[in-house]
């Protein structure tokens, strides 16, 4: 640790700023595409793709209202905590061939911890707003978080364990390692099925993590009028909007890193800067496809579940699918 030079620190800081900026911009852009596609599937025209940007700039100039019986420092602090923690995760995620900026300073276990922070930020903000709607929303968000943690962790552990069997010499929970060794190539037919089950598990967790239909009970517009976010306005709401956009990128990137870490540059026989650009573009296409399946498509095709149904869905069917996937991968390894 003592060997880090000043230059390296400067590079990291600059890199962090660039990644944060790109993460936010791409997140908002993808949110626009998501809204447009959802609208087309629902037989409406939909907002222009730049709508999330317009929403953001408009919210920034709007008045920031703090309710009288809110705990104002928590109320104002929660959105910042949520945004900062979600941007921090971006620094740990690999993009195409580029290893994570903070590679070596934390692995996927840290990411799982960090993923709970934006959620906790929203919960704390909800409880601090002093509104019964926000209170109910925050309770639901907590219940949901407790429900989807198990399947999420199962997925990650399964892949890490498999890697540890094949490459005992590596730090298997490092995303750089996971990114370099796709799971599909390491397993036999049984494990392949297991990996598919794990992917389904992660695909089911993603809408919950992002509070999208059918798992949007904490925000449920028609029930709780926005739930956690009901009292938020102006700058704070804009920050939560950014958090949502960044979290979408985080969750889709995580799926890509765990299951689809393939690159395109060697197929096209590119090298140098071109390879880099091709891989980054290919990565963007991949996270777009994952977002389309896990977020956009699911949210136009189903109704919202009640919170007890959400809990049940995550604890029983989704967890069982996840554990089954884990077991199949273990079996696959033991038999071979």
């Amino acid at each position: 640790m003592t060997t880090i030079s000043l230059f390296e620190i400067l590079v990291k800081i600059l890199g962090a700023i660039v990644i944060a900026f790109l993460g936010v911009v791409i997140g908002l852009f993808y949110k626009g595409i998501d809204r447009k596609l959802a609208a087309r599937m629902q037989a409406r025209v939909g907002p222009p793709i730049r709508q999330p940007f317009m929403d953001f700039f408009k919210l920034m100039i709007k008045e920031n209202i703090v309710p009288q019986n809110a705990v104002s420092w928590i109320f104002n602090g929660a959105p910042i905590m949520a945004l900062v923690s979600s941007i921090t995760i971006l620094l740990y995620l690999p993009v195409g061939n580029i290893p994570p900026l903070l590679s070596g300073y934390g692995d996927i276990v840290l990411i799982i911890y960090l993923l709970t922070l934006p959620t906790i930020g929203m919960v704390v903000g909800g409880f601090a707003s002093g509104s019964p709607y926000a209170n109910v929303g925050a309770q639901r968000e907590m219940v949901m978080m407790m429900s989807y943690e198990l399947p999420l962790v199962t997925t990650v552990i399964a892949i890490g364990w498999k890697l540890s069997q094949v490459y005992p010499q590596f730090n298997v929970f490092s995303l750089a390692v996971i990114n370099a060794h796709p799971i599909w190539g390491l397993v036999g037919p049984l494990g392949f099925i297991g990996a598919i089950l794990l992917f389904i598990t992660l695909a089911a967790v993603t809408p919950g993590e992002l509070s999208k239909v059918p798992f949007d009970a904490p925000e449920a517009e028609t029930e709780l009028a926005g739930g956690i976010l009901v009292e938020y306005s102006g700058r704070n709401l804009a920050l939560f909007g950014l958090t949502d956009a960044v979290k979408t990128i985080v969750m889709t990137s995580l799926t890509v890193a765990l299951f689809f870490p393939y690159n395109i540059s060697h197929l096209l026989a590119l090298s140098g800067a071109f390879a880099l650009i091709a891989d980054v573009l290919f990565f963007l296409v991949k996270i777009f496809l994952v977002m389309f399946v896990e977020v956009t498509f699911i949210r136009v095709a189903v109704a919202r579940l009640k919170i007890d149904q959400v809990s049940f869905a995550y604890w029983i069917p989704v967890s069982i699918i996840g554990l089954l996937g884990l077991m199949l991968i273990v079996l696959d390894t033991i038999i071979v």
């Binding site: 599937m41 629902q42 037989a43 409406r44 239909v213 059918p214 949007d216 449920a220 517009e221 028609t222 136009v300 095709a301 189903v302 109704a303 919202r304």
Partner: peptide, 9 residues
């Protein structure tokens, strides 16, 4: 029910 597609269709 939070099923907006049904509303529009």
């Amino acid at each position: 029910l939070g099923f907006d597609s049904v509303l529009y269709i």
